[in-house]
């Protein structure tokens, strides 16, 4: 088993014919992902990367029955694309695009919650189940099928954790990048819940960063509901207060959200802390014994 995506995932790509979507779709297909079609309004009827192009998600739904969608459309159009996929009945939506206005996400989040849809992102690297399917922009080659579930708010930092667990031969069950925006579609807690219920996952790595209180909330959830060992690294231990570090989420507001606060809370809740970025893999190995 694994979570969210596997070899049976039938993927639809929104914004399919754009340059980023094309580049990453090629890589995903090469990895073995089943891309059943794509959407670019106005280009319906064409074939792109060997898959049919549709004018709308609804048209695609009727013709090729996708059960997941990945979005590469520019930020101003993401609200529309997410809600279109939701309206067409897709239950797993991954939005890669960065720069989506926060107020757009407030409305989107409320709607997808009502419909019971899992939205990953925006501003995220996507989801991969090694050896089965890659729905995102991560390099497939660093992954290895295995037992560690990885959740992260940051893209390249996820790759670092993946690489270390691969080098140690542990491998990954599924890796989920939830994105660094203030209003993410999926929280740490949503993914922790899935990993806890997944047989293949024996340990969970949670890579956090400064800003917000998502890690603190996750810590309490872990204390109360997660029986599997959780290893965490928090980036931004040396970031000065109040300075923005690229991610909209990484702002220290009112004394909350510092790396020290988060680490303290995680430790109190029984989470194993990798003090340094370099020690994530080693810490997992140590905890698993």
């Amino acid at each position: 088993m694994s979570i969210l995506v596997n070899k049976d995932t039938r993927l639809l790509v929104q914004g399919f014919t754009g340059s980023q979507a094309t580049l990453h779709s090629e890589q995903s297909i090469e990895y073995g992902t089943n891309i059943v079609g794509g959407v670019t309004p106005g280009k319906g009827g064409q074939t792109h990367l060997g898959a049919p192009v549709f004018n709308s998600v609804h048209d695609a739904m009727e013709a090729v029955r996708p059960n997941a969608s990945i979005i590469f459309v520019p930020a101003p159009f993401c609200k529309d694309s997410i809600l279109e996929a939701a309206d067409a009945g897709i239950k797993l939506i991954i939005c890669i695009t960065e720069g989506v206005p926060t107020l757009d996400m407030l409305v989107v989040k409320k709607r997808i919650d009502e419909l019971g849809i899992q939205l990953i992102g925006p501003n995220c690297p996507g989801v991969i189940t090694p050896g089965e399917a890659k729905l995102g922009i991560m390099p497939g080659s660093i992954h290895l099928p295995g037992s560690v579930g990885i959740i992260s708010r940051s893209g390249t930092l996820t790759y670092e954790a993946v690489k270390q667990t691969t080098d140690l031969g542990l491998g990954q069950s599924t890796c989920v990048g939830i994105g660094g925006d203030p209003i993410p579609g999926t929280s740490f807690i949503d993914v922790l819940k899935l990993f806890e219920a997944d047989d293949q996952t024996t340990a969970i790595v949670m890579v956090g960063e400064i800003g917000g209180t998502a890690e603190e909330e996750a810590a309490e959830y872990i204390r109360d509901h997660v029986t599997k060992p959780v290893i965490s690294y928090i980036a931004g231990q040396t970031a000065p207060a109040g300075k923005r570090m690229g991610h909209a989420g990484a702002i220290i507001a009112g004394g909350k959200g510092t790396a020290a606060d988060k680490i303290k809370k995680l430790q109190e809740c029984g989470v194993h802390i990798a003090e340094n970025l370099l020690q994530i893999g080693a810490k997992v190995k140590e905890v698993l014994g």
Binding site: R153, G180, E209, Y233, T238, K243, H247, N276
Partner: peptide, 26 residues
Amino acid sequence: VNGAGLAMGTMDTIKYFGGAPANFLD
């Protein structure tokens, strides 16, 4: 560094080995 998270992680690593980062740059 490429990526904001890894950039912060790199700064932390520099500090960890006794150095001081001059900037954050993604």
